[in-house]
Write a protein that binds this DNA or RNA. Sequence first.
DNA 1: TTGATAATTCTATAATCATGGAAATATAGA
DNA 2: TCTATATTTCCATGATTATAGAATTATCAA
Lengths: 123, 123
Amino acid sequence: MQNRQAITILAALAQESRLAVYRLLVEHAPEGLAASAIAEKLGLPNATLSFHLKELSHAGLVSSRQSGRFIYYAPVIEAMDELVGYLTDHCCSQSAGTCATAKRKCAPKKRVATAGKRRSGST
Amino acid sequence: MQNRQAITILAALAQESRLAVYRLLVEHAPEGLAASAIAEKLGLPNATLSFHLKELSHAGLVSSRQSGRFIYYAPVIEAMDELVGYLTDHCCSQSAGTCATAKRKCAPKKRVATAGKRRSGST
DNA sequence: TTGATAATTCTATAATCATGGAAATATAGA
DNA sequence: TCTATATTTCCATGATTATAGAATTATCAA
């Protein structure tokens, strides 16, 4: 994961309403929830929620699909997994040896074209 | 970790200069770097760096210690570990069963007064 | 088509955040 | 003490972000 994208995702999560939306969606994964249901559950005005959903969407943290008049939003677990990977890849000092080796994942990794980029300096 | 604190830490990291500072400090853990060294390496004006260091410090991501005329800043790995714990605790759906069980850590966990609070609903 | 509902976009406003020069504070050495 | 260096704080400015009412677009059902 690139620096830039990590910042985008961090910024998307670093806001009370958006974090609440994301966590709510995680509770309702993988189907997700309609925007109206999210707005009602969190007590957010439509326009405000729409703004935040766009941010989350732009960061790749949520996906949406239309079903009739409703648009369902669902969390993209892979994005969170990437973020956690980025953070753990950069949160500890190699020289200090404080990294535990266990690798934590949120979801099975999809094979992408850029496979093998991350954590490349492991030896 | 509380919602509020997670947001504080996420916001602290969600900024280009601050993320760069944090990553630089991680490379130099555990001694850390003097503010002047950070400013030089990243090409940041003193006042700007000081502003960002305060943010990181306030979020609990870095600590500082004075040594002569220098103030050394070092990363607080436990804070990052807490954040990663928070994210993995909330990034996946229990019902969807997409959580891997492996627990990733950045540093050995310090025993604190609130031991056992996190991940309490595991059964 | 009409009416109702779902969601987004438009828009203005307010609030927060980032930047960096200049002044202030703190420490060390002569 | 005086001077140099390290760092922070003060302050003004500009940029970005959050909020939410109103208007708009889209879908469905009859």
